[in-house]
Design a protein around this nucleic acid. Structure first.
Lengths: 130, 130
DNA sequence: CGGCATCCGAAGCGATACTG
DNA sequence: CAGTATCGCTTCGGATGCCG
């Protein structure tokens, strides 16, 4: 029907052994990045839009983003002066991220409809048309 | 420093209670979608670029994509005639997906460098600059 | 305020083995 | 060929509690 799959199909998405593409391992990473688009934010401030996510989860998400160079952590004097901000790299990912978000918004109804249709569909074993 | 975070920041990425944005729950979803861009593929054919992923994992990935209306499953007569193909919805997501893939390719070195720098950096407790 | 320690349950990945 | 069944392992997410 079509040409065989190219052997480099894997490298295309997972260059040099990077984890296969998922945008992120962490549930909240994309949202955190978007929350930082207007400037630095504090730890407790970031918890709000994340539905009061527990500190443990937010900490691990932030460490992961920091490890990949997408955000930076700044701790000033005093206990209330820790802020997180986008790096240049982190800012650059907002563009493709927005493309995916726009897609989700545009096709949201389609996704919901597909799920509802799938729930009411016959099971896998009975789906053969042969 | 900046305006308070908008309360609808969550809805922006996770409309109506959808799982917080991760592009997919499944590790291989994005790669499967791209493997189907040139036409329908068979089950065993899809396993190749996924590093010989086990059938169980591939099955769940395909069911998930089918549930969301991104791919369709066709079973013809005979045991070797099951194919998977992109739906119109699935084809439409290739565009924003490509944007993210291009970003990864363009900033791959930055990501690797950041991780290496992070590994050699002092631990969290010692990173205060105050 | 900005975390960390501990515990728990759920989910995903992967290997092995088996089936129509 | 295209899956399913079972298992073990790891990771994530969330709750609770404590600390400087």
């Amino acid at each position: 029907m079509t040409d065989p799959l190219a052997p480099d199909m894997f490298e295309e998405l997972c260059p040099s052994g990077l984890t296969p593409f998922r945008l992120s391992e962490h549930k909240w990473s994309a949202l955190v990045l978007r929350c930082l688009k207007d400037g630095p934010r504090r730890f407790s401030e970031l918890r709000i839009p994340l539905h009061r996510v527990t500190p443990r989860v937010l900490t691990r998400t932030l460490r992961s983003l920091e490890r990949d160079g997408l955000i930076s952590r700044s701790a000033g004097p005093g206990p209330t002066r820790v802020t997180y901000a986008l790096t240049g790299l982190g800012r650059s990912i907002l563009v493709p991220l927005a493309a995916v978000c726009d897609w989700t918004a545009a096709h949201f109804e389609d996704l919901i409809d597909a799920r509802e249709r799938y729930e009411g569909a016959p099971a896998v074993q009975a789906r053969s048309v042969g």
